[in-house]
């Protein structure tokens, strides 16, 4: 464990809590892409199946349960409890175009061809594009509430910090995982234009307006 990965996991946890809190407090999921949340739940479910087979640390096990529980709780709030506020018309990204290619790629490019490893690889590829429905929705509505942009900033920062963690681990332990690194770079690059808007606008108190 290193400071980059720790702050990355913390940013990830903060992002999830910001979102859950926003939906719960405002009793509304307006502006939130349920499809992205479904993809995240799929990512954690396929990645954390090893909860039953391998034990890394109490921290690792605890965080896996937290990510699984919060992602399903978020889906419950969006699709059940506050489904009246779910914005169907703007959450229209075809997620099968993300799931199927990720699965195909996981079957072709992986470290080992066994069930858990292919699912882990699938979850890595899927996570790199899971935010697209949300970014697509923000671009369609042309704007995002500031709390949603804080959520996106924390979520984007988590994988950016993981990149620093991978550099650090390669430098200190000689450990590297190219699949995670390439997917993590793609994932972070997808946030770049949002990061730019967030830093130049939201931090100056302006609303996040995306050129529609």
């Amino acid at each position: 464990m290193n400071i980059f990965r720790l702050t990355g996991d913390l940013a990830h946890l903060i992002a999830i809590i910001i979102l859950l809190h926003k939906i719960w407090k405002s009793r509304s999921c307006a502006g939130i892409s349920g499809k992205s949340q479904v993809l995240f739940a799929l990512v954690y479910t396929t990645r954390y199946l090893d909860l039953v087979t391998s034990y890394v640390s109490i921290y690792n096990t605890f965080m896996k349960f937290v990510f699984l529980a919060t992602s399903y709780a978020t889906i419950y709030l969006i699709y059940v409890k506050f489904k009246a506020t779910y914005d169907h018309n703007h959450d229209t990204f075809r997620i099968e175009f993300l799931i199927l290619p990720s699965l195909a790629l996981a079957l072709l490019i992986n470290h080992y061809f066994n069930f858990l490893e292919v699912l882990w690889t699938f979850s890595i590829y899927l996570e790199s594009v899971a935010i697209l429905p949300q970014l697509f929705m923000v671009s369609k509505t042309g704007e995002a509430e500031s709390i949603t942009s804080h959520y996106l900033f924390a979520l984007g920062s988590y994988r950016a910090l993981y990149i620093l963690n991978w550099i650090y681990r390669y430098a200190t332990e000689g450990h590297y995982d190219l699949i995670a690194i390439v997917a993590g770079v793609v994932q972070t690059v997808l946030y770049c234009d949002f990061f730019y808007l967030y830093i130049t606008k939201v931090l100056k108190g302006k609303k996040l307006q995306l050129p529609a």
Binding site: H12, H111, W120
Partner: peptide, 10 residues
């Protein structure tokens, strides 16, 4: 350096 055996990251 070797490719990771089991995944110790979240």
């Amino acid at each position: 350096p070797q490719v990771v055996e089991d995944h110790d990251e979240l």
